[in-house]
Design a protein around this nucleic acid. Structure first.
Length: 201
DNA sequence: GAGTAGATCCTCT
DNA sequence: GAGGATCTACTCA
């Protein structure tokens, strides 16, 4: 199992990277407590030309600044005042591409995840949906901008890959406001995996 | 099982 | 001052 190199993130095709992220392992290690989960669902955000992206039209503010950094860092922000959302920044400097991690399959530190989320036992909802992932992994907005190759937070590769036919591409969730861009098939997930987030609203 | 409302706060206008 | 890349619980059927 090895940590993904900078060259994985610093590529121009965010859709390709999103596909390849499926099967990779997201690891956090706060205060020596390891939690890890396999990525089974994610969404690509296509920078300035994507109406659903925070950086649409070249919007550059304190919040989105980290998306303009070189690929390989975390972008975490608060949504609806409650949910912390974890994104992977990709591509090169000044190109605000990002991938939202939407679902994980828990692998390590499950007891820790249960403790953080206040749940009593493991079920499909533990790491289903971006808000739940951040909660279970202990990720907060304070972690925005940190490297994905650091000791506390990184994405690893254990050789797992999914075949093209095991990966499904659909429209993204919760971005109806984005007009035609809401129909883009930028959401990828592993077919039949029970941790993939369910119905959209 | 399906639909809806409420939580709750940071960010940008 | 408004609204959002969401989730959960509760109502109603």
């Amino acid at each position: 199992m090895k940590c993904l190199p900078k060259s994985f993130y610093q590529r121009t095709d965010v859709l390709q990277i999103a596909r390849e992220l499926l099967g990779k392992i997201l690891v956090t290690k706060w205060n020596g407590k390891i939690t890890a989960g396999r990525i089974v669902e994610c969404e690509a955000y296509h920078g300035e030309i994507d109406r659903a992206s925070h950086a649409f039209g070249g919007r550059r503010t304190n919040r989105t600044e980290v998306m303009y950094a070189n690929g390989g860092v975390a972008y975490v922000y608060l949504c609806y005042g409650i949910h912390h959302m974890f994104n992977v920044v990709t591509n090169y400097k000044n190109i605000p591409h990002a991938i939202l991690i939407r679902a994980l399959e828990p692998l390590q530190g499950i007891d820790k995840m249960l403790e953080r989320t206040g749940k009593l036992k493991l079920d499909n909802s533990l790491t289903k949906g971006p808000g739940n992932i951040s909660k279970a992994m202990g990720i907060q907005t304070a972690h925005t901008g940190i490297s994905l190759m650091s000791k506390e937070l990184f994405i690893a590769d254990d050789g797992t890959t999914y075949k093209t036919k095991e990966i499904v591409a659909t429209a993204r969730i919760g971005v109806d406001y984005a007009g035609n861009d809401a129909k883009l098939k930028y959401r990828f997930f592993v077919k039949g995996n029970p941790y993939v987030s369910g119905k959209s609203k």
